[in-house]
Design a binder for these strands. Structure first.
Lengths: 340, 340
DNA sequence: CCGATAAATTTACGCGCGGCAAGTTTTTAT
DNA sequence: ATAAAAACTTGCCGCGCGTAAATTTATCGG
């Protein structure tokens, strides 16, 4: 079993010309069955793999797909990134995962790095409010891009996300139906979803004939649990809650809220003897393990990741962006647990 | 501002020969100051970047560093991966992050992909029990590799991890000092750390004159919270607990345990009226937000990531592996919260 | 100011593959 | 059986850069 240096050598061993072998590696279905079998047999025997750098240098378009999430330490993004990676691999692409770690500079650096990888396309979940719009625009001019999770108007050729209005409608209606109308617990919005959720909350409450009550707490960044915890403590101690039902802008805030309630000895839930009901939005991977488990609206991870990748694949196949920018929103599923 | 196609064109614009420009990009300090200034000035003006694929094709060794973690959806690994990435970038390398998603096949596939990237080195946190030892050995023969978090004897040229004996010693002594000696709550071990922790628990208990009590629950995989939750429910309902103090093999198991306790109406903590004390090991990012917040032993993320990367950098600089395989273990810090 | 030496720079070649054109063989259809 | 189509081979160029060897330029003591 000799060491094979390049495709030339490998081709010689198979008795097939190099261009045909090259064709095989680009698409095994593009060569005759008999040829394919001979190459595959040799492949088992000699363990040769084309040099990925030489391939990417010469192909006009690589098979790379860049994936960028704002904050990978959030299991929500870890989970959706995992699904997207899987689908890219299955489609014959080479996904490369990046996290902006919540910082604009990092996001911009990554966009730069990504561009030098000459990717066939990119799936971006931008930071949102902290994103550098100009940098994103420039990137999208060079690379076919689909945005997901966090929408930025006019950026990318498509956006796949969640129907925040529907999410909020579901949970607010549920809460109103089963108890006191909720107040809305939020922090300074980091992305458009947070704004849409607040506005949807206000709209739904008014539609149902209730007075909306938005409680904004201090603190920013991506350490949501901490912000929620500290904000909740301050709010509880100052007695600023005018209802026994709290809808948090997202699950991670809710997790912090629950911690604060526990610390103050307030029992959370809908059962007898409970002081408060707390609900979230997202169905974060950890939400079923909070105390009590968190009532929330589940993001449709599966659909979002599927549609995002498929939209990008279509975009890659059909050269030239479509006439209109597409936005696709998925509905959520109410997940009733013990907290509300 | 014309578009620059390659280094040739760029070099012409600066009036310097291409190889000298190439030298500059590999190490700006290796060219004369006057030359450097001219290039840097042109760089601001023309926005040229060398083609990464052409670079990597020709360099005997790339600047890539592969990072592999067993399960990126675990914020612990997300966090340590983030720190490692940062340090690689600062050192002028190009980190590429992969997750095995808890599966051997994925881990092996990634090792293959990684090898074709001809990385200067790799930082691996192997799956552990599920890892394919032969595949890892083969990989390590081709790539300078440092293992972290999870040790596999004889694999890689160094291992950087945690001193599980010290971790367990600290928390067991604390628990014994402040209440009943703990039992040890574990699942089927996924990696050597779990085994070391159990054995350390037994040793410490015996040293302190107590009878060790290991409770193993059903269930495998990487869904630790779920395993802990279901295992705890079964254990509580069958009344198999002979002590009021539970030390969980890791924080994620403990999180599940707390959820089960909450569901059964058992108050956890050391305060008056509490039925159980529960402690974990790791200081998982979410452990301070459980109800009650989790007493645990904190991993020294910072030191582990720092030493891992620095060890690898040294290994890369000095060609040829060192005479002996180094193992470096960091101690933990007891984090006292309300749960125990 | 000269020659020796080190540093900087240029010359020339190679890396491994994609892609094209023209010619040859095999397969498929009539 | 024969013509047309499909698959394959040969031969060559180009991609954008790294790098060893050759050449030039700078440095410095005398």
């Amino acid at each position: 079993m000799t060491k094979i240096r390049n495709m030339e050598e490998f081709a010689r061993l198979t008795g097939i010309s190099r261009p045909t072998v090259s064709k095989f590696f680009n698409d095994p279905a593009s060569v005759r069955v008999s040829t394919r079998n001979r190459i595959e047999k040799a492949l088992e025997q000699y363990d040769y793999r084309p040099n990925i750098f030489a391939i990417n240098q010469n192909r006009k378009l690589t098979k790379n797909i860049g994936i960028l999430v704002p904050y990978l330490a959030d299991p929500f993004f870890a989970e959706i990134a995992r699904k997207i990676e899987r689908r890219c691999i299955d489609a014959g692409f080479w996904p490369i995962l990046f996290s902006a770690h919540g910082e604009q500079k990092t996001e911009n650096d990554i966009l730069d790095s990504l561009r030098s990888l000459k990717p066939a396309g990119a799936l971006l979940a931008p930071l949102g409010r902290r994103s550098d719009r100009a940098a994103l625009e420039q990137f999208c001019r060079a690379v076919p891009t689909v945005l997901f999770d966090s929408n930025i108007e006019g950026i990318g050729t498509a956006f796949i996300g969640s129907d925040n209005a529907h999410f909020v409608g579901q949970i607010v209606e549920y809460l109103c139906r089963t108890g006191e109308p909720p107040c809305f617990f939020e922090m300074q919005p980091v992305n458009p979803n947070a704004n849409k959720r607040r506005n949807a909350y206000i709209a739904v409450m008014e539609r149902l004939g209730h007075v909306p009550n938005v409680l904004r707490v201090e603190g920013g960044g991506w350490d949501f649990e901490k912000v929620g915890y500290e904000g909740a403590l301050a709010m509880l101690d100052a007695n600023r809650l005018t209802t026994n039902t709290v809808l948090c802008s997202n699950d991670r805030l809710a997790i912090g809220f629950l911690t604060a309630c526990y610390e103050r000895g307030l029992k959370v839930g809908y059962a007898e003897g409970c002081a408060l009901r707390v609900a979230g939005i997202d169905d974060h991977p950890f939400s079923r393990f909070t105390c009590p488990p968190l009532t929330t609206v589940a993001q449709d991870y599966e659909s979002v990741s599927n549609r995002s990748t498929e939209t990008l694949f279509q975009l890659i196949d059909s050269d030239g962006p479509p006439a209109t920018r597409v936005e696709m929103l998925f509905e959520g599923r109410l997940v009733m647990r013990a907290s509300a």
